[in-house]
C-alpha cells in the first residue's frame, strides 16, 4: 500500500499526459516559445493533422490550441521548429514538416499559414517521400532532408531552392543530422553511417557499418554538446550504438538494456554524457556514458514505463528538465 501510494504520488508530480484523438508520431519542442509543443498525427491516409499545444510546468497541465491546428497531407515524418527566433520583434514561430514534400508553416498567435513548399521534382508527376530532415542551428537558412530515393538534399530556406543534392547512400536514407554549419551525417537501409562535408562534395566518409550485412540503421543523433559522439539504432535490435568519429567502424559503447526494439534516441541538450532511448518494451531509459568502458556493460540511470510501445522521444532544449514521449495516441511529458 505504501509503495503504490508513493509511486502514484511520484507519477502525478513528475509527468503530464495528453490524449490525442489520433495516433501520434511527429513531435517537436519550440526553442523560442518554451512552452510550445507540436504534435503530428499518424493516420495511414492522406488526411492528417498537426496540433500545437502549450505546456505549463507550474500547474502540470497541457492545453491544446484548436485555432493553431492545421491539416497536413500524409503523416508528417518529422516536425521541427526554427532553431532560433525568426526576428526579435516577431512573436510568430516557424515550423517545418516533412512528408511527401518539405513544408514550412508560420505559427502566429491565432492562425497558421503555409509559407513554402519545397519541390525539386524535374516533372510535377513524381516526388520521393522524405523520411526525415534536420534544421541547421548554426546557419538556420539550411535544412537537410533525407529521402527514400537514396538522396540527401540541402535546401535554401529563403529562396526555396535546392542548394545541393547528393546521392548519399546505396539504399533508402532514413535519418539525417547536422553536426556543423556545413557537415552532416546520415543513416541508411544499407546499414552505414556516413559523414558529408559540403566543402568537399566529392567525398563522404563511412564511420560505421552494421555488423550484420544489410541490417538497416533507422535513427541518428549527433551529440551537440560533444561533436565527437553520435548515437544510432539498428532495425529490430535492442542496441543503442554509441560512435566516436575519431575511431570509426568500432562503437565505443553499445547500450543493451532494452528488452525490445529501440525506436527513438535523443542526447541531452545540456549534458554531453547523457542520452535517452525508448522502444517497443514500453520503456524510456536515460543513460550516463562513463569515461571508462565497463566489462559488465552500462546500466541506465533512470527508467520510465509507458502503457505500450513508445514511438517517439524528444528532449526539450528550452527546458532540459522535461522529456516528451509518444505512444499510441498519447503524449507524455516526463520530468528528469
Amino acid at each position: 500500500m505504501e509503495n503504490s501510494t508513493e509511486e502514484s504520488h511520484l507519477r502525478s508530480e513528475n509527468s503530464v499526459t495528453y490524449e490525442s484523438p489520433y495516433p501520434i508520431y511527429g513531435m517537436s519542442f519550440s526553442p523560442s516559445h518554451p512552452h510550445r509543443l507540436a504534435l503530428g498525427s499518424f493516420i495511414e491516409e492522406y488526411n492528417n493533422r498537426v496540433d500545437i499545444l502549450s505546456f505549463h510546468p507550474d500547474t502540470l497541465s497541457v492545453t491544446p490550441h484548436p485555432s493553431l491546428s492545421f491539416d497536413h497531407p500524409y503523416p508528417p515524418t518529422k516536425l521541427m521548429f526554427h532553431p532560433r527566433k525568426p526576428s526579435p520583434s516577431s512573436s510568430s514561430d516557424l515550423l517545418a514538416t516533412s512528408g511527401d514534400y518539405l513544408r514550412l508553416w508560420e505559427i502566429r498567435d491565432n492562425s497558421v499559414d503555409a509559407v513554402s513548399l519545397f519541390n525539386n521534382s524535374k516533372t510535377s508527376e513524381f516526388c520521393a517521400p522524405l523520411t526525415s530532415f534536420d534544421w541547421n542551428d548554426i546557419d538556420p537558412n539550411r535544412i537537410a532532408t533525407s529521402s527514400i530515393d537514396t538522396t540527401c538534399t540541402i535546401w535554401d530556406i529563403e529562396r526555396t531552392l535546392v542548394e545541393t543534392q547528393l546521392i548519399a547512400h546505396d539504399k533508402e536514407v532514413y535519418d539525417i543530422a547536422w553536426g556543423e554549419a556545413r557537415v552532416f551525417a546520415s543513416v541508411s537501409a544499407d546499414g552505414s553511417v556516413r559523414i558529408f562535408d559540403l566543402r568537399d562534395k566529392e567525398h563522404s566518409t563511412i564511420i560505421y557499418e552494421s555488423p550484420h550485412p544489410d541490417t538497416p540503421l533507422l535513427r541518428l543523433a549527433w551529440n551537440k554538446q560533444d561533436l565527437r559522439y553520435m548515437a544510432t539504432i539498428l532495425m529490430d535490435s535492442n542496441k543503442v550504438v554509441i560512435l566516436d568519429i575519431r575511431s570509426p567502424t568500432t562503437p565505443v559503447a553499445e547500450l543493451e538494456r532494452h528488452r525490445g526494439s529501440v525506436n527513438a534516441i535523443a542526447w541531452a541538450p545540456h549534458s554531453s554524457t547523457h542520452i535517452c532511448s525508448a522502444g517497443d518494451d514500453t520503456q524510456a531509459l536515460i543513460w550516463e556514458l562513463p569515461t571508462l568502458a565497463s566489462p559488465t556493460g552500462i546500466d541506465p540511470v533512470c527508467m520510465y514505463s509507458a502503457g505500450c510501445e513508445i514511438n517517439q522521444l524528444q528532449w526539450s532544449a528550452a527546458q532540459p528538465d522535461w522529456i516528451a514521449i509518444a505512444f499510441a495516441n498519447k503524449m507524455q511529458l516526463l520530468k528528469v
Partner: peptide, 24 residues
C-alpha cells in the same frame, strides 16, 4: 515553369579498416 535544374552529386565513400588494439 516547374522544372528546377540542379546537379545531383554522388560522393565517393571512404571507409576505414578495423583499428588496431593499440589505437583503442
Amino acid at each position: 515553369t516547374t522544372v528546377k535544374p540542379h546537379v545531383v552529386i554522388k560522393p565517393k565513400a571512404r571507409t576505414f579498416s578495423r583499428p588496431s588494439p593499440s589505437g583503442l
